[in-house]
Design a binder for these strands. Structure first.
Lengths: 363, 363
DNA sequence: ATTAGCACTTGGATCATACGAGTGCTAAAC
DNA sequence: GTTTAGCACTCGTATGATCCAAGTGCTAAT
């Protein structure tokens, strides 16, 4: 019954569009009469009723119960997003607000993502999600040891993917810049480039031998390095504006809302969701209802877009709301914010400058 | 009417305790009859009624309406927490679970706090909050510049409070270790120890003059330093288990819950709340209802405890739930978790080892 | 092909009633 | 003097009946 025959005539499209937009606006089923009175259709309610009846048969609409108006089906929304919707044009006001917010804080990617989420939530009145996928353990290409105090050193690690990690290590013996220089060299020759599995006990002992004094220094350092290598950084998810959801009657059911909240906090599912989608698709992705493999989110829509920097996906920002959501506005917002972030990332320093990747060398 | 005369006799205390515990258990007003049938009181309901009536007059109990049972008043809870409650003894099971979780991930304070929150939420079935107060702008005592690639350097700043901040800076000119060494020295002589206001334009120009080449390097570096100095790090708040709140009918009202969520996300109020309390008190703090200055939280109770490392408050973890909360269990949990974290912080490195503070030198 | 008209369905709001839980008080019992 | 039994009273909620408005589907007329 879906997409049978060949699609909708113009009038049906217009009606469907009007229904969806009306429903999104006030959240109630839309009746035939409503469409005639408020709107530009020069048709009677009866005619519209007939069309609606057909639209229902074709799967674009649904009836909550006999005497209610129609509501867009998931399929209907999907069609709307794919074909009917026109891009939302931000108002002067919104644009100004956005620019101001975007410019305010940049710097580290983390902060950037967080700001972006808050922004998205504030602008759309839906819940917004920042996703930072975990980098799966990469090798370390270079070490630097920095002398901080007599007892503390900082370990700086340049990762193969171009990012940098740092950590402080507390040593039990008296440190000196010279000592660190020696250890740094040893690390760079012996450990750089290796994966966690390759750091065997004999290797560690060899290093301790080379370094000579103070295995109370080598020990903690190696331990820290192993931790970083093994880390498989879990990825991070930040929510903003969860409270907005409660504005929509769709989330009135406390129990279901609780479940949803639980999933959102769990991170895992969200991360999977983002990584499941087409890796190369850099447009906003719209996941409507049951297209979503996470059960608890099947009454919601998730719109998200990946953010790249130097060819690598470094995160994503998304918006979550009821299936009845202002797709046009949400999609534009996500798109706009993502673009801006990419822009900022290109301009500012802060993270991988594209470094040792294959693609970038052709310039 | 509060605390008039001189306090409760034994029987009143017992009855009050029983009422509170029953109410916490099932969330409904407690009637006189209920107390007699289920419980160990060898009294009739009438007697209990009389006692309850007096307890009400004294301000420990309240009646939602004439024909409902009694409910503990805020004052009643406060009394319970202060005098009646006995420490919750964790079950073998809970202890095991906790230990396992605590041991799993430690390392950075951030991670630690996050794990702790999740733990607290899981154990208590309330919402848990990790609070990392912002350090109010401190001076930088020392700089280190680390060569990372031809174009990127890492700026390491030792702060006056003993912590370390790092940031990457992208330079437009070709970097070299020698270059950085020179700049490092200039920074250490010219800027170290200064506050943000003291970094004037003339000073910056002086530095550029001293450094000579490439103000395309000095510019970004100084800018970054100023940002860090001005930063007044906002502090951070992490929530876990928000969904648990929805289990309690107290939070059924979607609108109020939305407001509460909004406040929790805002961070600001929470941070204030924690910093408002007695700085030196390291026991768990219990803020019940209207004792809380945040309006939206006046129907809730917040239990939290500060975490110190080397004398400095580095964060707090707390639990938020309905006023009717299992105080005994919650307080013990918070206490236990906090103690464990302190323990871990003492054992592992990772953060300020107490550094250049006054108190610590006396060892 | 469109429209007017009408019978039918149905969820929600409104109202009245009944019920149950709990109290406060008085008078009797210990 | 304290405790208890008994009873009238209060009040929130659950239940059910009724009504209404909105919307549909269908048929017949335009």
């Amino acid at each position: 019954m879906r997409g049978d025959g060949n699609e909708l005539n113009e009038r049906k499209k217009l009606i469907l569009k009007a229904i969806i937009e009306a429903h999104v606006r006030d959240g109630e089923p839309v009746g035939s009469k409503y469409l005639t009175q408020n709107k530009q259709f020069s048709l009677s309610s009866a005619t519209i009723r007939n069309e609606m009846s057909e639209l229902e048969e074709m799967g674009y609409l649904e009836q909550p119960h006999t005497s209610a108006g129609r509501v867009p089906s998931e399929y209907g929304y999907r069609f709307y997003v794919n074909s009917l919707m026109q891009k939302y044009r931000m108002s002067q006001n919104e644009l100004a607000r956005m620019n101001a917010l975007v410019k305010s804080r940049l710097a580290e990617v983390d902060k950037l993502l967080e700001t972006a989420t808050q922004l998205a939530a504030a602008l759309t009145n839906y819940t917004s999600i920042a996703i930072k996928p975990g980098r799966s353990a990469t090798a370390i290409t270079k070490f630097r040891l920095v002398f901080i105090t007599d007892e503390v050193l900082m370990l700086v690690m340049l990762m193969a993917d171009g990012s940098v990690r740092t950590g402080q290590i507390h040593a039990d013996l008296q440190l000196s810049p010279g000592l660190l220089e020696r250890l740094e060299m040893i690390l760079n020759t012996q450990i750089a480039g290796k994966r966690a599995e390759e750091i065997s006990m004999p290797l560690v002992m060899e290093i301790e031998r080379l370094f000579g004094e103070g295995d109370s220094l080598v020990g903690p350092v190696i331990k820290y390095i192993c931790e970083v290598l093994a880390e498989n950084t879990g990825g991070d998810v930040k929510l903003s504006g969860v409270n907005h959801l409660l504005e929509y009657p769709e989330y009135a059911d406390a129990h279901k809302f609780k479940e949803l909240l639980g999933v959102l906090e769990e991170k895992r599912d969200l991360l999977r969701l983002v990584s499941e989608t087409d890796e190369s698709d850099d447009r906003p992705q719209v996941i409507i209802g049951s297209e979503n493999s996470v059960e608890e989110m099947q009454d919601s829509t998730l719109v998200f877009q990946k953010i790249r920097s130097g060819g690598k996906v470094i995160g994503a920002i998304g918006i979550l709301g009821p299936r009845r959501m202002d797709y046009s506005k949400v999609i534009s917002t996500v798109e706009y914010i993502t673009d801006n972030i990419s822009e900022l990332l290109r301009a500012s320093p802060g993270l991988p400058p594209g470094g040792q990747d294959d693609d970038e060398h052709k310039t």
